[in-house]
Design a protein around this nucleic acid. Structure first.
Lengths: 219, 219
DNA sequence: CTTGACAGGTGTACGCCGTACACCTCACGC
DNA sequence: GCGTGAGGTGTACGGCGTACACCTGTCAAG
């Protein structure tokens, strides 16, 4: 009827992100999104496979937009900058953190982001083992919010080779995790160990702050 | 028809938890739950107000079941035990962590649990300020998983008095947070500060581990 | 014993959701 | 001129939460 611009996967994703930003992820429905695009609901399915795939696409778009800082400093401030940058992105799209946790498998953009952060630790000289546990300790704080990111799915021990090429740092850490505990088969990391690693790290930090009479003025 | 035991709020909650445990929270519907209880869907509404209230009830039930350890040790091991105990509970009900994050207001049982953990820090001598930031740093790790627990809702500055009576430690920390930043009105804590506090705490911990050549053998 | 109130289970119906499937339309290469 | 395929449409189905009117059995008051 009206002369509206033709749909495209990109336009669909963009509109979906905008809609989720403004009205919340829970009220993002295919029908509502179609209406926003002045189109019949089924038209969307010519551009995204289904709602899950739509969410994956939205997530990949926003995570892919996290800006990467330069590598011109020490690993600690580089990581700090990258994570705070991720946080800014996540604050702009508050539905994203929940959506990431809900997905069962990380999207390529999330994997790429993790790979880049792991790379920072490795370039800083941290061992593969330490880097692995450090990532668990950060949890989803690495993405600018807080929650368990590495769900212990039934993934096999060794990573498939094509993943190793695309995300070398992820693959390296995953391989080390598979070796560290005795069995080659199995989920690869000891959840309980990771949890206690992070917990003790924080409790030790709290204790240190307490002993040195920490006050809000200076961390 | 058959002589089945009469419904009750408790039986409904119990069945809902069992169903969520076995088939996942996403496939827990009022209709499915009613069918499990051999009852017509609308019968449930005589015992729970609606699905949200059902979820709150389920959450309160499982969080209320976290066992409280004795106070016969230092604060650090006491907190450690309590959190690991919470983790065991959360692992038994894997839907619970996601559900807690989804709720907008913490249920009474969650508040009571937070209050007890805050009490441990305070009894250990940590200042109100430090305790406040420490709770933010722990995030939802304090409940045995990882994610942001203290959503920055539009809550007013000073806590209502009845809350102060029921959860004195929560109230104390909330009051301190309201004072710490200049304005009495407003959300009470500086999200960015809390995030960086926790992030730096962990990065400092990582650095310390790296410098002392940490290996998986000993934390 | 009658009655009437009330707690608790029922049946129907509405508006939302995701999406399968058949269809229409129209630009474009042959 | 015509097939073909990309892209938008219309209808329909099964599932969801739940409003609302209804029925039924229990039990205290009269």
């Amino acid at each position: 009827m009206t002369n509206r611009p033709p749909l495209s996967r990109d336009r669909v994703l963009r509109a979906a992100i905008e809609l989720a930003d403004s009205t919340g992820i829970e009220s993002l429905s295919m029908r509502r999104l179609a209406q926003e695009l002045d189109v019949v609901p089924m038209a969307l399915y010519k551009h995204v496979a289904n709602k899950d795939e739509l969410l994956d696409g939205m997530l990949d778009t926003v995570v892919g937009a996290i800006e990467a800082p330069g590598h011109d400093t020490d690993w600690k401030t580089a990581v700090r900058r990258r994570i705070l940058s991720a946080r800014q992105t996540m604050l702009r799209h508050r539905w994203a953190s929940r959506a990431i946790e809900t997905r069962q498998a990380p999207t390529p953009a999330v994997l790429a982001y993790l790979d880049s952060v792991i790379g920072m630790f490795r370039r800083g000289g941290l061992s593969v083992d330490l880097t692995h546990h450090v990532m668990h300790a950060l949890g989803s704080r690495v993405l600018g919010f807080t929650q368990e990111l590495y769900t212990t799915g039934p993934q096999a021990g060794p990573p498939p080779p094509e993943l190793a090429l695309a995300f070398p740092h992820v693959a390296e850490v995953a391989a080390a995790a598979a070796h560290e505990n005795g069995s080659v088969v199995g989920s690869g990391c000891d959840d309980q160990f990771e949890f206690e690693f992070a917990l003790d790290l924080m409790l030790d930090g709290f204790e240190r702050l307490h002993e040195q009479r920490w006050t809000p003025g200076r961390s």
